[in-house]
Design a protein around this nucleic acid. Sequence first.
RNA 1: GGGCGAGUGGCGGAAUUGGUAGACGCGUUGGUCUUAGGAACCAAUAGUGCAAGCUGUGAAGGUUCGAGUCCUUUCUCGCCUACCA
Length: 848
Amino acid sequence: MDRYNFKIVENKWQEKWQKSKVFKAKIDKSKKKFYCLEMFPYPSGKIHMGHVRNYTIGDVLSRYKSLKGFNVMHPMGWDAFGMPAENAARENNLDPKEWTNENISTMKKQLKRLGLSIDWDREISTCSEEYYKHQQLFFLELFEKGLVYRKENYVNWDPVDQTVLANEQVIDGKGWRSGAIVERKKLNQWFFNISKFSEDLLKGLDELEEWPNKVKIMQKNWIGKSFGCEISFQTEGELPVKEIKCFTTRPDTLFGFSFLALSVDHEISKYFSKDKEFLKFRDACSKTGTTEEAIAIGEKIGFKTKLLAINPLNPNQKVPVFFANFVLMDYGFGAVFGCPAHDQRDFDFAKKYNLQIKTVVKPDNENDNFEVKDKAYSGAGVLINSEFLNGLKVPNDSILKTIDILEKKKLGKKKVNFRLKDWGVSRQRYWGCPIPIAYNENGHVMPIPKNQLPIKLPENVNLNSKGNPLDSENEWKNIIIDGKKCIRETDTLDTFVCSSWYYLRFCSPKEEEYGFTQDEINYWMPVDQYIGGVEHAILHLLYSRFFIKALGFKNNNFKFTEPFKGLFTQGMVCHETYKDQNNNWLSPEEVELVENQYRKKNDPTNKVKVGPSESMSKSKKNVIDPEKIIENFGADAVRLFILSDSPPEKDVQWSEQGMLASYKFIQKLWLLNEKVKKKIKLDIKEIYNNSDLEKFTNQIINKYTYNLENFNYNVIIANIYEIYNFLNKEVDKNINSETLKKNYRKILILYLPVIPHFASECLFDLEYDDKFDWPKVNANFLKEDKVDFVIQINGKKRAILKENKDIDQESLLVKIKSNKLSEKYLKNKSINKIIFVKNRLINLIINE
RNA sequence: GGGCGAGUGGCGGAAUUGGUAGACGCGUUGGUCUUAGGAACCAAUAGUGCAAGCUGUGAAGGUUCGAGUCCUUUCUCGCCUACCA
């Protein structure tokens, strides 16, 4: 028999699918919709294994839901703006647009080769005018709603990329892309007022039942809601400062107050702008504040001012005011009230500067003389040494009661504080969406009239100019609005803006007037299943959620409040790492295994050091190119393997042996298919021995469907192997041909989501048809007449008896007593207790 | 420092509700066929014992007739986050 030729078969079906547009999604209100979306790729050049895994998972789901009768939309697009294009273009003297579009066409071909069930008619690219013109309109709309504003503030400046980074893009004080140490710089920036929705974004998490808890917790922490109190501390001293505001979650510890600490950026710092000692201190802060070691050591340093702050609950107490490196300007009011006894950070600071450490909370099991010694005590207990607050239960009573008192005395008020900051969207780059704003000669903001959109990016710009290339595009920059000379905003939008609404665009990809139509988004949205990497757990997902709230703000037409109903975060694809004797990274292709010894190919004396398996990355050279693998083994085999070895939410190890095994398995399935076909042709009429097959088929449909619904994709692959193992033996028996055909057809449909080309080919062979429904379980065949009963004696398994289903305890006991078991374990013993679980087990408790 | 998650054979991993631990695959071992095989097929494969059996899901306790699964303590690893007042 011929071997299975995946090249011919896969090509045939891919062409067929393309021609017949089977994956084209149309609104059909009579059917339940299912919107399946994977995070769209950045067109960096070629697809990598992470894409293969991501899109295979989504494809399995999409195909399964279609077979289940859902009206599925499964689109694909390109997150096409961004710095790599600009950098690559500069290095190779190209146009970023050309570079991007070439990459898109390469990657699109590669994705098609995987046999994905994508509606390519909905393809979008964020760098196309047709896309970003709508984004510019959204910007103006949000501007009108007051959700976009401009302010000057300190920004994270990446000196290598010459651009501003969002807080989230600064990792350990370094730029997330360049790795350069981030500097502080004051700039005028555009902001989205995401913090306005802090409460909504937090509450909305509760309704996201199909999101991983982990991601919800991450977002919750990021939004960082805390309940406390705003206190105005009166001050005394040589400066014209009368009061300082602080936010605290622990107003109840006010009697333990021993210092007040300010951020070096606090407005009071303006009185120190000529103080050399202060400036030196501020420098030291900005240097130590960001490095990893500094944070790890956590050394606290301060600069003492001559100001004194007065304790609002005890006006006789006056404590020093410091500037301190650990106080952040963008949280609370940039000022902290210090209570060393009950906050470790304050404790460290007080120790260093010899400040008073007064205990005001004692744990419940201590007496009133309790004193904090080596470590701050931040636990629960009772207030002490706090005059009229003494005896209050910490934390709940004490905090509420203290706030009450402060409010009555007009010294403070209840306050909820959020950690979430507004989203700075300005980027000093060329390859992004232009911001539809201009400035007149007085520097006033002039929104570009909507009828002048889109603002197209100028072409043929000089990318080698320093900073933002758009700054030097004078012709593009200078425009006339209402007959007046204006200058365009040259910043472009953060690319996270593009990805915050692309899922809406897929609903109306060709709509010209607006980014989408109400009708279409209200049919397709929300995305039923969103699939992607956990690295986007905070930024992208939070921004997208914000976008829905912002677009829906003062607009009641949206029938949904969250963009992504279900979220699945898949793990990474890993591979061992290799280094040669000179410590150079080697790719798997450069390494061979000879007699249990890894060595460099063509260089047998060069032993290779095998490192741990890590996520595939170009820098460590542990990458496997999907294109070559698909060419060697076929799309189906790759899909099979990428799902088989680990649960999809966990990391998976790429294994050459595993890949080969999947390839061979497809061959085996093909041989089995030939065998089954032959058997069916024999036209056997006998009814002999069919129930096993029917039983098995129904049981496996049951299991398989359960596993599919629960994302146990590695287990469905195991189920496919089980099917093979069973059927390969079963088919040798004398099976009624009709029965065989009927059941085999159901089984092939089970294969369709995972190995669609192979399964389509076999099904077509069997039926000359390509319309299928997901097989239903016939419960009659799930019924077993015999069941394996576990016989336990004193809780230990002693035997398994095959007995009639639904047998009762008494009858089972009779069976056991007539069994040799009885002789061995029950002779001369009395049974004290019997635990009987129907159709499962019986446990006999006897005297030893 | 805080949060989350995970520890099951040589390896990746199964085990819907507490009810036969180790499905399925890789690897390994033995065999068949082959000029040969990194091919195919058959068989074995948690440990220990000739065997009946005993021991086994990171460790120690607990609840239960019964625990990989629930509770407490603890160890190890991974991921995220970080001076958030």
